[in-house]
Design a binder for these strands. Structure first.
Lengths: 346, 346
DNA sequence: AAATTTTAATGAAACGTTTCAAAAAATGAC
DNA sequence: GTCATTTTTTGAAACGTTTCATTAAAATTT
């Protein structure tokens, strides 16, 4: 019967309700409309099964209430959690989320930005590694874990504090000779501060340590070699390791075990990220400095959507916390005497 | 200088290049245009930094090259992996992905469908639980793990075969008294077939078994109670457990350990999903029936985008495989004699 | 070189909204 | 009951594309 089989438009609703197009628009936008007209329009809309066409609306209003989240991929729990929280927060505010994955490729990062820009998103939250990323100044942008410039707000956890916390915890739990293992892409970012924090704490407290960095994202060999070199008569000459990610921490534990070293008895290990597989159900997991993923996500969303974007902080560091797991000896707590002679606050 | 500070449009490009609007459009759409004009247009576009406005294009062409993926949330590795593969596949084909999370709420599932429909996505891939979901017949839709109707293609792994495989493996590895643990939302779906497959194999091979189902998504108590009841003099009266998810398997292992039962020596456990934390780096993980997540994702995308959507299969089951982990005794392999007197193929 | 055919370029209309100036209706004051 | 004022409703224009019927130009044939 219907002339058109396609989805009904506002024009159809207007005809059905016997009012003008503008009135229909006013109803849906909460403008002043008499009660009787309002009812007529709403009834017609229901009857026809009318749904707003956001593409048409976006064209006219120049805002789409869609934002993009760009990250390497949701195959890593940290990114997956981030995507989840961001998506949830956006939906609650009536926004939609476009997910773009880059697989750590700088080219893809740029391409994704282009892609979502064409799609007229209202803003971008990005977790990128390309230091030369070209960012359109006119499009609201919030960066996670990478500082670009004064005009691009960056959100991260307090990586420096996380580094010091890891060092402190290891020592409190009885470790005396520490190692820092860092596996990371070649470019620098906020997470580098984990190392700085760790080293600075060790130096200040006169704890011997060593840092080993592998810039190849997949290469565990440097760590493997080092571990082997350091085992004399079946005993390692270190007793605490801080890894810059939980993933690395798991691998290191594996390596240690394969070399006959037991964790946490011989060597204690602390990771970074606070990945909790399957909620909190899976114990034991690696002991870790946990990032406040949810708060970071909420902060990113709120900054991106903030009405006044002219006075946003350049860098926002959210607090981390220590989560005991199966790779540290929580039974062993040493009242560690700190440099200034007092116990530091937790 | 520029009259307008906003992003340049095709009209601006046309003016800059000294050609008509239609010609600019033709250039970007690969229609027949003389070489000289083409160059003029492309140069003008580059100079102005022109980017197509996909909202305007979508309005006119009625297709947005955006598809929606709806799932409970990317906080679960299975969904996260699925999202990742789908997103990747779509991007490779020039599509964008909108992610909508439902947190297992039937209402949210419907709301998400409404939301992405308004957004004029070209199709939906959904992993939903609401059995009464209203699906618009005119919008391409592919369901994962839930069968809706003949007109909605459903993709899943071969859950039934997975169930039989789990039972078979447990027996091959020496288990003789089996348990099936199922924790699931109250509604039925393809994954229910895991139980059917498991039970049927056990019955056919005369292996004693018992199935325990908890319909409350979070309630592990039934399993805990059962395990305790079944321990006499420190020894359980079962020696193999098949859990319908890896997550549950981890919890069960935990429960067993807390009750003084060692895995896999006393009891062997097999989960379902094949979640691999952090790629393949983390060993040991739970032994598992692994779902072909990537193939499922690719299949879903290809079906959704298929040119001829009239002859799509109603249900597509992709093959599963067994992945040994730390919760089974791979050292113990019994040449199990099957019902028909022959060794079944793997 | 004129007539014909083929090819390329043009510009107006349309997609489904919002917006806004103008018209119409309702209300209030006298 | 008229006029002034306020409130509500209307309908055309615009957003940035694509499409398509025309027109113009080029190529081919006579």
């Amino acid at each position: 019967m219907n002339k058109k089989t396609s989805t009904p438009t506002m024009k159809d609703v207007a005809r059905e309700a016997g009012v003008s197009l503008g009135t229909v628009s006013n109803v849906f936008n909460g403008a002043q409309v008499s009660e009787s007209y309002k009812i007529k329009v709403e009834e017609a809309a229901r009857k026809l099964g009318y749904k707003v066409n956001r593409y048409a609306r976006g064209l006219k209003t120049n805002q789409t209430r869609t934002i993009a989240f760009i990250c390497p991929g949701t195959d890593h729990p940290f990114f997956a959690d981030m995507a989840n929280y961001i998506s949830k927060a956006l939906q609650e505010q009536g926004y939609r989320m476009m997910l773009a994955v880059t697989q750590y490729s700088p080219d893809m990062e740029q391409k994704c930005i282009q892609m979502v820009t064409e799609n007229k998103v209202d803003g971008i939250i990005a977790l990128t590694y390309n230091p030369d990323l070209i960012i359109d100044e006119n499009l609201p942008f919030v960066s996670i874990d990478r500082f670009y410039s004064e005009s691009v707000p960056c959100i991260s956890c307090d990586n420096y504090a996380g580094g010091t916390l890891a060092a402190r915890k290891l020592c409190e739990l009885g470790a005396t000779k520490l190692l820092f293992f860092n596996i990371a892409p070649a470019v620098s970012g906020e997470p580098d501060k984990r190392q700085a924090g760790f080293e600075s704490w060790c130096r200040f407290h006169n704890v011997p340590f060593e840092s080993i960095v592998s810039s190849d994202d997949q290469a565990f060999r440097p760590f493997l070699n080092l571990v082997r070199d350091r085992i004399h008569d079946g005993k390692p000459d270190f007793d605490g390791i801080f890894c810059n990610t939980d993933k690395l921490a798991y691998v290191i534990c594996q390596i240690l075990k394969e070399n006959g070293i037991s964790v946490p008895e011989d060597v204690q290990v602390i990771g970074f990220d606070g990945i909790n597989m399957f909620g909190d159900n899976m114990m034991p997991c690696v002991s870790s400095i946990v990032q406040p993923v949810e708060q970071m996500a909420l902060q990113a969303v709120s900054m991106l959507l903030s009405a006044d974007r002219t006075h946003l902080p350049t860098l926002t560091c959210l607090p981390v916390r220590y989560r005991p797991g199966g790779t540290t000896r929580e039974d062993f707590v040493k009242e560690y005497i700190y440099g200034n002679g007092e116990k530091e606050p937790n």
